[in-house]
Simulated scan of single mutants.
Amino acid sequence: MGGRLFDGYSRGLSAHLVCHCLLIETNDGLVLIDTGYGSQDITRPRERLSDFFLALNRPQLLTEETAVAQIRRLGFAPADVRHIVVTHLDFDHAGGIEDFPNARIHVTAREKEVADQRRGGVFVSRKRYRPQQWDEAANWSLYPFGGGERWFGFDAVRDLEGLPPEILLIPLAGHTWGHAGIAVQEDDGRWLFYAGDAYFHHGEINGEHRTCPPGLRGYQRLMQVDADARMANQRRVHTLSTDHADAVRIFCAHDLVEFQALAGAP
């Protein structure tokens, strides 16, 4: 609920967000960046998701919009997804992990640690992380948080296990303790930078002055674990967008305008 006070453009009482995922075709199979909600979230939402977030976010749980259904629609099989790279393990980013039992899951070690212990903020700690979404996953690759090589001024975890060198993990703490963005170098040398939940609205990184609807600003504060780190990283992403617009295209997890632009929607 909230309309344009939440997303900045909706005319009715409801606002609209997305769960943005990215599918990458490599020489060694498919790589899925975040998973959105999974098929089990659709069939058993009360078991897999918290009542609080079901009521607050009112997710439209549609089978045809799950990552596994969309991948099948593209002509691939779930087994073709060899790797899943997750920005963090919140319920709306990791729900589809078990739809791809053969995939290796890549995440920062810090994120896996706090998710297993359900330390995700005082109020939301036992609601944001839903271990039942990934407790059957056996293949994990965990990476140190920070101190890596540099990528446009950011720490970068390179050489992810089994992945091509064009896919990097970029630590962006604040939304969660182990939150990270994903950088993907395209064939033309330019980069796609999926910033996850480092920001929620395109106005926060585009233009000279950062803007965000008040409802969405409040939601980000509700979900943050470290306000200073989140805002510092958001400012860095904004600077990246202004100083390197010709080399990097940035998008986040939940902004409908960015999603439509990248998906070629009207």
Rank of each mutant, 00 (worst) to 15 (best):
I170L: 08
F154E: 00
T211M: 08
V157M: 12
G148F: 10
V184M: 15
S125L: 05
N139F: 10
W177E: 13
D197P: 01
G146S: 13
P213W: 03
L216N: 10
A183T: 01
A137G: 10
R150N: 15
Y143C: 04
G218D: 09
P165V: 14
F193N: 08
N206H: 15
E186G: 11
G203F: 00
F152T: 05
P144Y: 07
L172T: 15
L142F: 07
A195Q: 06
H179I: 03
L168Y: 07
F193D: 08
D159Q: 14
Y129M: 12
L172Q: 11
E136D: 06
G218R: 03
Y143W: 12
R150L: 12
R130L: 11
L163C: 15
E166Q: 07
H175W: 14
W140R: 06
E161C: 11
P131V: 01
Y129P: 03
G153R: 04
R126S: 09
W140V: 13
G215V: 02
D188W: 11
P171N: 12
L192N: 11
A183I: 02
I182F: 10
D135M: 12
S141H: 09
V184D: 05
A180R: 00
Y199S: 00
G162S: 09
I170H: 03
E166P: 02
Q133H: 13
G218S: 13
L192V: 08
H202Q: 14
Y143P: 02
R130W: 04
L163E: 13
R126L: 05
G218C: 07
R128D: 05
R210T: 08
W140K: 13
G181K: 06
F145R: 01
K127T: 10
L169S: 15
G174C: 03
V157Q: 08
A173N: 11
R190L: 12
Q133G: 09
N206W: 08
D188V: 07
P214T: 09
L168E: 10
C212R: 08
H201K: 12
G196I: 01
P144M: 07
S141N: 05
C212Y: 00
A173I: 05
V124M: 13
N139P: 02
L169M: 14
I182Y: 04
A195I: 12
E204M: 14
V157N: 05
G203Y: 00
L172N: 02
S141F: 05
L160S: 10
S125W: 10
D187L: 12
A180Y: 00
I182R: 11
H179D: 06
I205G: 00
A183V: 02
F193E: 07
G215W: 08
G174M: 00
P171I: 06
Q133M: 07
G218K: 02
F200W: 14
D197G: 01
H202R: 14
S141K: 04
D135V: 04
G218N: 13
D135I: 07
R128F: 15
V184H: 05
F154M: 01
A198E: 03
R128T: 04
D135S: 13
D197F: 01
Y143T: 01
Q132P: 01
L160N: 05
A180L: 00
L168H: 07
E149Q: 12
E166W: 12
G147Y: 03
D188M: 04
N206P: 00
P214V: 13
